[in-house]
């Protein structure tokens, strides 16, 4: 993602009192704009923390949005003089980076994780700061998919348009752009329905459709010759491969394909040690993809277990948040990929 920072500051929404909630977000301009719109009817304070202009999810996993960001904005905004309480509402997707325990120790403020989506915040505040299950799970609606497809196409076009422009001129770059946008939209919208086991195969399955579409559109411009057709197929294929490669990082369900190779993130294989688990529900709460399930051990003891390891996006939120260190990374414990535990 390309960062787009805005000034870190304190935003006063409505007419907050000394007991109004204090929300925290990052200084990505799009995030701030959407939050302000979602909260336009609320009376609250919004702290825009310095995080390099990157969104909450990428920023917290990528080390841009940290406890230091929050400490900085607490000190510089003077929020301590404006409210009586010391409670922050944090975006849930910052859980991989911000442990509420450490925040309390270092800044004297306690943090509670609010809903994932900005639209849910008004309801969350009305219900006495109580999150429902829907608020803590990532959803990926067709509208989001379309938006991500367009954002992804933009990023790909900025990076790769130069080559078709140099080789084929405007003819090439327009076809390239069209095929990137078409395959990105189809891949995002129908990712689950498309045939093929990998993203690349899925995208290649889409490309004949794109070629056909482009041919139909350009037919009135005067027939079709053999060489332009070959080039068109080539451009479309390249576009499909690029789109497929970028796809996983633009979905909320997969890790960015180069986070490991490029940034050297250690792989995670999460499990919960039964004996250490106190059943505090925090792991289940911060997990954005529904990995955990409650297990009733006996009448007065409920623990959590890793129920859906396939869902795991390796964000590490549960690992950071667990107050008793019952959540462990199996790769770290044994060094080798262990056997999947039987339920």
């Amino acid at each position: 993602m390309i960062p787009h920072p805005t000034k870190s500051r304190l935003i006063t929404l409505g007419e907050p009192t000394r007991d109004s909630p204090v929300l925290v977000t990052v200084n990505s301009s799009l995030t701030v704009r959407r939050l302000s719109r979602a909260l336009r009817n609320e009376d609250c304070y919004l702290l825009v923390a310095p995080a390099g202009g990157i969104n909450v999810w990428c920023g917290s996993v990528g080390g841009h949005f940290t406890i230091e960001s929050i400490i900085s904005i607490i000190k510089t905004s003077g929020i301590e003089k404006l409210v009586n309480h010391r409670r922050l509402i944090l975006p849930q997707l910052c859980a991989p980076a911000i442990s509420s325990k450490e925040l309390h120790a270092r800044a004297g403020w306690s943090g509670q994780f609010g809903p994932i989506r900005a639209e849910d915040i008004p309801e969350y505040l009305r219900k006495g700061k109580h999150v429902t299950t829907e608020m803590t799970e990532i959803s990926y609606s067709p509208k989001d998919r379309l938006e991500m497809a367009i954002a992804m196409s933009g990023s790909i076009l900025v990076r790769f348009s130069l080559l078709p422009l140099v080789i084929f001129g405007l003819w090439g770059v327009s076809r390239f752009a069209a095929s990137v946008v078409c395959s990105a939209v189809v891949l995002h919208m129908f990712s689950e329905q498309l045939p093929g086991s990998t993203n690349t195969r899925k995208a290649l399955a889409v490309s004949p459709l794109v070629v056909f579409l482009l041919l139909v559109v350009s037919w009135p411009a005067g027939g079709i010759a053999i060489w332009p057709l070959v080039f068109l197929v080539g451009l479309t294929t390249v576009a499909a491969v690029l789109v497929a490669n970028a796809h996983s990082g633009y979905t909320p369900f997969k890790q960015c394909s180069y986070s490991r190779q490029f940034y050297g993130y250690p792989p995670l294989k999460i499990d919960i040690v039964d004996e250490a688990c106190t059943g505090c529900t925090l792991c289940d709460w911060v997990c954005p993809v529904d990995c955990f399930a409650a297990v009733r051990q006996n009448a007065d003891r409920t623990t959590y277990m890793m129920a859906n390891p396939v869902n795991c996006v390796e964000c590490g939120a549960c690992l950071v948040q667990c107050p008793t260190s019952a959540v462990v990374n199996l790769f770290e414990v044994s060094g080798t990929p262990p056997q999947v535990r039987c339920a």
Binding site: I2, P3, H4, P5, G52, G53, V158, R159, Y258, Q261, F262
Partner: peptide
């Protein structure tokens, strides 16, 4: 292959984020 990929794909992106980011 990763090295080629980084040089030709990620390096331009780094340059871009240098100009756009802070």
């Amino acid at each position: 292959w990763w090295r080629i990929y980084y040089t030709f794909v990620e390096l331009p992106l780094m340059l871009l984020s240098f100009f756009v980011g802070e």
